[in-house]
Design a protein around this nucleic acid. Structure first.
Lengths: 151, 151
DNA sequence: CAACCAATGTTGGAGTCACCAACGAAAGGA
DNA sequence: TCCTTTCGTTGGTGACTCCAACATTGGTTG
């Protein structure tokens, strides 16, 4: 009984924060994708809906900046969301370059369901941590992210 | 002077650990990819080389388990590494299903350079944190990752 | 006003990473 | 011997990130 020899991944890897972060991101992404996928959505959809619900009508370029998404990816996302009747895209009368994107009531309803799914994901993701540890982790990550979004 | 109106991303997003982790992973990945890219490598190459150097000769399936990679992605990676003379692939005489993959001295040299690049990445990534905070973060992330790789 | 520059939406692509289904060959256990 | 598992391989898919180019429009400056 030597115990199952679960193949060990190199310590050189597991010691590196970049490894820990990216691998954990894989799990986070999988959890979220599974949940979103069940309702025909994906991460991009959620991001845009949240931004719309939080700040109201916005141009596509604004949405891109707020959600950390490329303009071209916004186009595709809005196409999909509009196709499902979750947002509406109308030309801005004050600036004919822009489109104004609004969330519909169906979109808000959809967002609420996505939100619930994502809350469960957070729970799963942080399951082994005490609430104090979760707070510490969130604080450290926030610090790091803030630093990298400016510099 | 209202200050630059840097478009704010929704608090609903920035409060979620899954958002923080995945966005930070984006930065980590970008930093690492930039460094690796300058020497014609990518993450998969590094992972495999580290595993080989740490545990010696291994079959492709073993490498996949150690590096958290799909068997099919191992094939492509070994093809590329072998094409550059960084690893060698030879059939296992004791098990004719397997290939034995060995790192070459050129591979070890290449790995050392990748390692240096990645060390700089860790520095960049964690720049704003004290060494104590870094330790805390590493500990928390390790806990989480361990949990999600079993369950 | 004219010339220039910046922003916007859009198209069409790229690369990385993760993952899946299927296959033949080979090994191992019942 | 059958049955199952493992292995390497091929050939995909999807999500996310990012880039280059273009025409249209807005704003600014000479």
């Amino acid at each position: 009984m030597y115990g199952a020899v679960v193949e060990k991944t190199p310590a050189r890897l597991t010691a590196k924060p970049s490894w820990l972060i990216t691998q954990l991101a894989v799990h986070a992404h999988r959890l979220a994708s599974d949940g979103f996928g069940e309702m025909g959505a994906r991460g991009y959809h959620y991001r845009v809906l949240v931004a719309l619900e939080q700040f109201g009508v916005a141009s596509q370029a604004e949405l891109g900046r707020r959600c950390n998404m490329d303009r071209s990816d916004i186009v595709a996302t809005i196409n999909e969301l509009a196709g499902q009747g979750l947002v509406e895209r109308t030309p801005d009368p004050d600036d004919r370059r822009r489109n104004l994107v609004t969330i519909t009531t169906a979109g808000e309803r959809h967002l609420r369901r996505l939100e619930q799914t994502l809350d469960r994901v957070q729970e799963d993701l942080l399951a082994p941590l005490t609430s104090e540890d979760r707070q510490t982790l969130t604080h450290l990550l926030t610090q790091l992210l803030a630093h990298h979004q400016r510099g």
